[in-house]
Write a protein that binds this DNA or RNA. Structure first.
Lengths: 212, 212, 212, 212
DNA sequence: AATGAATGAGATTTCATTCAT
DNA sequence: AATGAATGAAATCTCATTCAT
């Protein structure tokens, strides 16, 4: 039971490649069938490893699911961070955040379905430790969005609302619309929706008075 | 195998009372532990019926879950309808919709958790027929919201956006915030949040220019 | 828990009528679906009594089945006895036996299916006491046939074979052919088959030499 | 979920050996207790596998039963074919058929009990597909016997009866006597009974006139 | 290190029987 | 005496996990 994490050695590299194979298959299956609808045998078949081998990489089925969510969330967070910080605080960061989210969604549709639709259902099932860590990571993501809001408020771009509430609002709009738009899977057109979300979120749905 | 639905007879009333007892226990358990985390034995224990009796009321565990969601959704829809239609089309109806949703959430927190967090995960598990009906009911709800929006657009209260997209946005905001607010379960304060949601949704998050 | 068996009183007559109703329904169901394929609820529905009432007439489901077989066998035996004893010992009795069996089969097809096809399977299920009595009744029937054979042997009509073995042979032919013939349910034509069975059983299947 | 049927590899051989082990235990239990009287736990205990393992070999309990009957019937049919075809058409084949049946019965008493006593009761319980195949296999067996009869008729050894009816008659005699003889389980003496059956079936039970 | 057969705990579901009304 | 809702024991089947090869 050795842990290979060094990417230097060939062994280490191969280990990581196989692990990634498994997670890729898991992402597809969990998105399509949910946590309980996916068996370890399904996962073994799709990933082309034996059941036993899966258990050399992950201690439990729960750990596969948990790891998948944690790593993807980390990656998402990293991307978000990078994209948003290319821009000055304020509206530009909010726009970047919307754009980056949609782009990530396009590239990781399966993960996002799990993230949006199954995450909370899964949380009810897992042990306390995993639940806590998963929730913390999710809250860190929300916190990041809230921080972007807080800076925009400070700068005077955004009303002096509670940044956390504003963050949840934006995330709610994004998730709700993304799931809706992919009911009919027009995945490639999503980019064109950015202005709508940006506009709605910032200026609201109400009809604006004409300026003379 | 007769069905008692007439509320007139004593038998009929008692039947419905026991059935409601089971659904009440199911609501609590499914909200706390999810569909897969709840066993029929758990449900029997909490509802204080035997396992066999549960099956005199519902053919399968799935049917318990499905019935719970369907009936509550119907009831929610009815309430929404009643509240919204007391007001003239336009902004007043939107405000009523937000208020009614929050009020219903306060009174049916457990159901709402299931509805928001587990519904889509559950859909992956059930037979095609139940999945279809459940989805249709959900879409009918969204349609109702979209209709309110369409009328507000026609009246000139709301921008000429796609009503369905606006509907998903509002529902997204509501659900996201409601789950957030009840993390710390300050259920009774929720009423005071109506103005925030109404304001954010209609006028947006951006800082507004002062009028002289 | 009183037992009504006197046919004199009205109560007694009604009791017996209802009991017969149940047995009639049971005969149909057990023939169509077998012992395990028939539930007490099925029986209640078809006989138009409540489940509870069935248990006022019979202590267990097993007892319904057992009673049905026992009474019908008794009745069959009585009929056989009556018909056969109208004739002098020897070939005439054998002919009468074949005729009576086929006639009874026509009138009690359902019972006979149970008797031929399910009886031995059922014996594996029931308690020792019932099993013993059922087997004894069946053996009494075989014994009766063997007796007819013994008398025919004594008279010089039948070879000096073991009467019991000859009895099993005739019963085997009858049952096998009756089930075959009713695969296509040409129930009314069965009477015309008597000569074939009589001829085959007595003179055998072999081609007979012409007499000059 | 791979199927190992090649007898070449060690794995394949071991797989088949374990499968045969289960079927052997099943044969014993089903013969003694019937289909419904046997539980998968009984079968697990007797075969010394766990319940789960049984399900790695057979999808359902029904499949165990069905497979047992089908494979044994195939084997019986093969044996019958081989033995009968060693002889010229006519009486010699009929004798061979009786001998082979009795021999097979001696070697497979448990299976035969199931075959004769439980088969038709079981048919009432199983899904349409299994029922159809089982019945077809049984009818093929009867057809084989009928064919032997048809050839004997053509040759002039047997009366010009309906071959199928003659076949059912012989099978009826055989089954009835075999069950009788094994009530007291004098299994080893059965061989000596061949002449009786042969004689009875061909020349009939009636006393024959002395030739001068 | 990889395999996949074996395991058995645990879940759903059925149904003969009971018993309060 | 009749009812049928309630009961719970018992059966089938699944699948995450283990471990000998």
């Amino acid at each position: 039971m050795k842990i290979h994490l060094d990417e230097g050695s060939r062994k280490g590299r191969e280990y990581l490649a196989r692990r990634a194979e498994i997670l890729k298959a898991a992402e597809k299956l969990f998105a399509e069938r949910g946590f309980h609808g996916t068996t370890m045998l399904d996962l073994a078949n799709l990933s082309e490893f034996s059941v036993g081998t899966l258990y050399n990489f992950f201690k439990t089925k729960e750990e596969v699911y948990y790891t998948l969510l944690m790593e993807k969330l980390d990656f998402f967070q990293l991307r978000l961070d990078a994209e948003v910080n290319q821009h000055p605080a304020g509206l530009a960061q909010i726009l970047a955040l919307i754009e980056a989210t949609i782009k990530f969604f396009q590239e990781n549709q399966s993960f996002f379905r799990i993230f949006i639709q199954e995450r909370s259902a899964f949380e009810l099932q897992v042990g306390a430790a995993a639940r806590k860590e998963l929730r913390e990571k999710y809250l860190a993501y929300i916190d990041f969005v809230a921080h972007v809001m807080a800076k925009a408020i400070k700068k005077g771009d955004i009303q002096e609302f509670n940044p956390l509430e504003v963050a949840y609002s934006l995330v709610g709009i994004l998730n709700s619309l993304l799931i809706y738009w992919t009911m009919d899977t027009k995945l490639n057109e999503l980019g064109s929706k950015v202005p709508f979300i940006y506009d709605l979120f910032l200026k609201g749905a109400a009809k604006r008075k004409e300026k003379k």
